[in-house]
Amino acid sequence: MNGHTHNTDDRRELQMARSMCWHCQSEMAGEYFCDRCVKVQPVSKDLDYFTCFGLPRRLVIDTQVLEAKFYELSRAFHPDFYQNKSDAEQSISLGNSAMLNTAYRTLRDPIQRAEYLLDLEAGAVKDIRTSPPADLFEEILELQETLDEFRESNRASEQASTLRAKLDADRTNLEERQRDMEARLQQLFSRWDTLQDRGEATEQARTERNHILKDMRDILSNRTYVKNIVNDLVATIS
């Protein structure tokens, strides 16, 4: 089983649905409502979340603006306001609301936002790391051993308290590492945004862009890996 895969037929069908009002068949100029018959239109699955909210593809965004737009679109789409409408409109309202809620949830969180942007820009789905990142390899292998020993030890013993002290130190260390990664991500986010703002189409800009995306992907997957390790550690010692 795998997640969200788009089918090309599906896309064509939806693009058609977008260019023409499903109800009165008139040409569509407006975003979500037909200019002529005022009927709500299904949001195309090809519309990316940034465009949906009228935002540029940036990684640092004004969450107040995002929230205001979310509320505005919720008022436009929510099923509560379609109770007296036709079945077709009710079902569009339901689909649009569900999509809007997903979009908002994704963009609201900086990490999910970055992962989503990576997916859009580099077409790569989140790559899930199963082995430790290179610069942490030794450290994490050792940590795993200590964790195993601790789990098997008698909690009241001398040995357990030595191990616990060691684990506490490891935890501090890893948390430091996490803060470091967050800071580097923030830097990458602003580098991305600046590059986009410049809007250059040079070879150099393209190289820079690919560089940022690659670094971002690495940090994001390391980040998830380290986060899981820390969670496991905290659960074991507390």
Partner: peptide, 26 residues
Amino acid sequence: ETMGGVMSSLIRRNTTIPASAKEMFT
């Protein structure tokens, strides 16, 4: 339910409703 009797989450708790998730089966 996925292989091995594990639950695979599609829509997390506290997700705003209406909410949807898609899954491909073969």
